[in-house]
């Protein structure tokens, strides 16, 4: 009797597996409108794989949405497969994604690399397999590219210049002679983090402001909160915190508030995410930089399409980075 009951339960769970998987594949059909599943991928219509970092990060999900919107507007021109990784650090998985996309026979890969060095060999192999590769967002390491003897066009903002814009704006706002600031860095292995740090350092040096503390909060809000709090208790004299992205800036706001220094310590960020705009309007954050994330992937896809259409691989394309402050927001 009970044996039968177990058999029935076994069938039930097997059914559940199938159900779930088909649910998965169905939802993918509706979720990202054009995928491999659409069957009609004729030779004339290329398939492009967009490989992102963490789609849980607003910056990248905006980027992906921009790309999907662009694809549905140009559905007759190409198909799109979008994949991301669990978190920014999972670069092993991102390399695996590149290999999987190569195996599944896409025509082009547009990638925002999680690491500026580690992805190069995998992308070199993709190019060797005849696939068009375009680098967006985070620029691949020039030395490694040279070493691997491969050229990959980069489409993206100049993070160093963007960070300088933010840093210069802050430098003008800070008054007095003995000015000290602290920096919240991104993950140190990331090229963007390095570029933004360089930009901040350059502006501070020019304005004659001392950086008394600089630590990595690994792009994360809660970690930034912890680190900013300890910075404030260690260096109560600092008058500003420069965060390498907006999430960390938001973490710093809370730290400044709980230290009771809201009036004294100014904060700047980078990326212009939705949440930061409210903070800027309220004056809690002084400025951020907008690198027009929603258009970034689209630029990359357009470069890939041009190359697929037979044009020679182009040079690097710099996309604009704009300073966002209370004034620019109210001007809109």
């Amino acid at each position: 009797m009970s044996t039968q009951r177990f058999k029935r339960r076994g069938l039930l769970s097997a059914g559940l597996i199938i159900g779930l998987i088909s649910f998965g594949s169905c939802s993918s059909d509706s979720g990202s409108p054009t995928t491999v599943g659409s069957g009609d991928s004729s030779a004339a219509k290329p398939r492009i794989a967009l490989i992102m970092k963490s789609l849980a990060n607003e910056f990248f999900s905006t980027m992906a949405e921009g790309a999907e919107a662009h694809q549905s507007a140009h559905a007759n021109q190409y198909d799109l497969v979008v994949n991301g990784i669990k978190d920014e650090r999972d670069l092993s998985r991102q390399v695996a994604l590149v290999e999987e996309m190569v195996a599944s026979g896409v025509d082009a890969i547009v990638i925002a690399p999680a690491d500026s060095k580690a992805l190069v060999p995998a992308l070199r192999r993709a190019k060797a397999a005849g696939i068009v590769v375009v680098n967006i967002d985070n620029q691949l390491d020039q030395d490694v590219l040279k070493q691997e003897n491969v050229t990959i066009p980069f489409v993206g903002p100049d993070n160093l210049a963007g960070a300088r814009k933010v840093g210069d704006f802050l430098g003008n706002e800070l008054e007095g002679s003995d000015r000290k600031v602290a920096v919240l860095e991104g993950i140190r292995t990331s090229f963007n983090a390095q570029q933004r740090l360089k930009g901040f350092e350059a502006s501070m040096a020019e304005a004659g402001i001392e950086i008394v503390d600089s630590q990595s909060a690994e792009w994360e809000m809660s970690k930034a909160n912890t680190i900013a709090s300890s910075m404030l208790s260690e260096h109560p004299e600092i008058s500003a915190i420069l965060a390498a992205n907006d999430s960390m800036a938001l973490g710093a706001i809370a730290a400044v508030k709980s230290a009771g220094l809201s009036d004294k310590v100014k904060i700047v960020g980078f990326d212009n995410i939705t949440a930061i705009q409210a903070a800027i309007k309220e004056g809690k954050v002084l400025a951020t930089a907008d690198q027009h994330g929603d258009q970034l992937a689209v630029f990359g896809i357009e470069v890939a399409l041009n190359e697929l259409a037979g044009e020679a691989a182009g040079d690097d394309i710099e996309t604009p980075v704009d300073l966002v402050t209370k004034q620019t927001l109210s001007a809109k």
Partner: peptide, 12 residues
């Protein structure tokens, strides 16, 4: 690999 090839959204 299978889910990546079908391009299932990250959450799913």
């Amino acid at each position: 690999t299978g889910l990546a090839q079908i391009g299932v959204s990250d959450a799913n």
